[in-house]
Nucleic acid binder design. Structure first.
Lengths: 345, 345
DNA sequence: CTGTTAGCGCGTTCAC
DNA sequence: GTGAACGCGCTAACAG
């Protein structure tokens, strides 16, 4: 194959020369300016075609001082929650003619910090954030530069932020009430309070609801950890060995619920006949025929779509009231919960 | 909260004025140029700090004619394969100081086309592609603009492309050989030839290996479809009803394998005692304690890392030979395969 | 070691 | 309707 040295990318000036007009006119055609004689417009269009001209968005961004790019900061894009969020954002942004600049922090503060700086450097028009860290200093950088920021799924400390989150406490309440209504009284909770503020709220909500319904909170069947099978199995085993074993489990995430289900089955119990399980999050996997998990949905799709939509509003109209939305969760009843069995296990 | 009108973002000129030097000097400090008097450097650094200056990457890209941005085109970022790929790319690119511009096509040609144009418009330095479509015209646009392109996991038609793919046929061979060595002779294949070229090759590889090992290919237990449980269950049911029922299944994707496993178990058989199953892809889920799937790994991580690395090479050194790498797959033996049981089912 | 000058490619006055 | 001139913020010659 011969190496063909291609001409450099054509510019508006090249197009102008070819069409025999000024560069300004080319720009006007490109931007759909109306008062142009039909024949000059056609000449310009023809030259654009022939030169394979593609407008340089970099230059355009520079002069317009707008990039039509939204930055998105996620925890870890290989986590299904964030991946689905990314998908929704990319699709919706494309419709509104915005580009999306995604970065994941891999739960590491340095990366988070670097991402923020990259976004500032690249002059994104706005930033969507779904992962925050204790040291939030670099978020302040965004505010310094007056870049609109919208949080979703996480609630930062300051009260003047824009955010869309789920009512996590209410979600736990739905789960507890559902189990109570099915006749369960001994409920085990798998919490994960240290991971994110939202997880902490699920835990808090659980405690509050248990009190509200006057159900006993048994510290011995309260798990505080992660979602790794190797941690969860021993906990479940111990819990079910007890004379006053729980008849059901509430978890902080669907991943935990799946691990619980696996453990329960491995220990020879039937779900939901012997043991009921309620997850939290309604990840895609939870509806898999293998699991059919009863779980609390946090309306992820609505949340993400709304977050993008509102951010674009902030970007395009700077004078806006802070946007603060709390979405109500919903209980998705599938096949892992049933009425409490009579005899204890 | 009072509305504070912030000064506009500082530029190198503002920094220069504040530090009492020329704008060029500021630029030199920014770029780590060496021959600068220590005290002027410090003065500049101080001014940068005080003005909260952040270099405008847009302007920098414009003059350097490089964006240090790699475009990535994926099928659907909420698919775990692509999500994991995205994660690897973002992480590795960050180390090399490149930004990543991700777009997913949602398997839709128009979106693919639009993504390519966006990438060209934004003047990415190179493009990584893991999803292609029959009408590839827009890929040619990239070539016109001399933008280096690296394919991974998919093999486009032209022979002069750069690509890194897995040896899919060899993967099927590993699966067939493994089952043959365990004593199986009646093997059912769940293919999905129409989806991607790589899936077609897995199917082809299966046929070739069966011939090579002189095993009978039974068209009646050859599934050609998707990975939806509702399609797979009836197939498995029919297959296992037969007098000469297969004793094992090979699938094109792990998702299919999981659906098969579920079906087999629902039909009252034990995996792997009664029926063996081999997946393809080694997605994260396949190692889940619930599944423990024996599967063919296509070395995704190596593939993705190498793709990025080689693309950056192409970007930074234009004169390069085409890069064409075929990775050898590996059989991951977990818990869904065992020796063929004696009595037929 | 540092400053001057000239663009990078485009949109935007302001004239005509 | 159209064009000339300017500037967005920065790097890259070329002087000194």
């Amino acid at each position: 194959v011969r190496v063909i040295y291609m001409k450099k990318k054509a510019t508006t000036i090249d197009v102008a020369r070819k069409a025999g007009v000024s560069q300004t006119t080319v720009s006007r055609v490109l931007n759909g300016y109306s008062h142009i004689k039909e024949e000059t417009r056609e000449a310009v269009l023809k030259a654009i075609e022939e030169l394979e001209f593609s407008p340089n968005e970099i230059a355009r961004s520079m002069v317009k001082q707008k990039t039509r790019t939204i930055g998105v900061i996620l925890g870890d894009i290989s986590n299904p929650f964030y991946a689905e969020a990314a998908n929704i954002i990319i699709t919706n942004a494309r419709e509104k003619n915005y580009d999306v600049f995604i970065s994941d922090t891999d739960y590491c503060y340095d990366a988070f910090d670097k991402n923020i700086r990259t976004m500032i450097g690249n002059r994104v028009d706005g930033v969507l954030i779904a992962a925050i860290y204790k040291k939030e200093s670099s978020i302040n950088e965004l505010f310094k530069y007056k870049i609109p920021v919208m949080f979703f799924n996480v609630l930062p400390h300051g009260k003047e932020h824009n955010y869309i989150i789920a009512n996590n406490k209410r979600g736990s309440d739905l789960a507890v009430k559902h189990l109570k209504d099915l006749g369960h009284t001994k409920i085990s909770m798998l919490s994960y309070p240290s991971k994110y503020p939202s997880y902490y709220l699920r835990y808090q909500g659980f405690l509050e609801s248990m009190k509200k319904y006057m159900l006993p909170i048994d510290e011995d069947v309260l798990f505080k950890g992660g979602y790794i099978y190797e941690e969860i199995y021993p906990f479940v085993k111990e819990a079910l060995k007890r004379s006053d074993a729980p008849t059901c489990f509430i978890t902080t995430t669907d991943q935990q619920a799946i691990a619980v289900m696996d453990s329960v089955k491995k220990l020879g119990f039937n779900v939901p006949k012997d043991i009921s399980i309620v997850g939290f999050g309604n990840i895609e996997l939870s509806s898999h025929p293998y699991f059919e998990l009863t779980t609390v949905s946090i309306q992820k799709k609505t949340m993400v779509q709304l977050a993008l939509e509102k951010l674009i509003l902030l970007v395009e109209d700077d004078q806006q009231e802070p946007i603060q939305i709390v979405l109500e969760p919903e209980l998705i009843i599938r096949k892992t919960t049933s009425t409490r069995r009579k005899k204890s296990i």
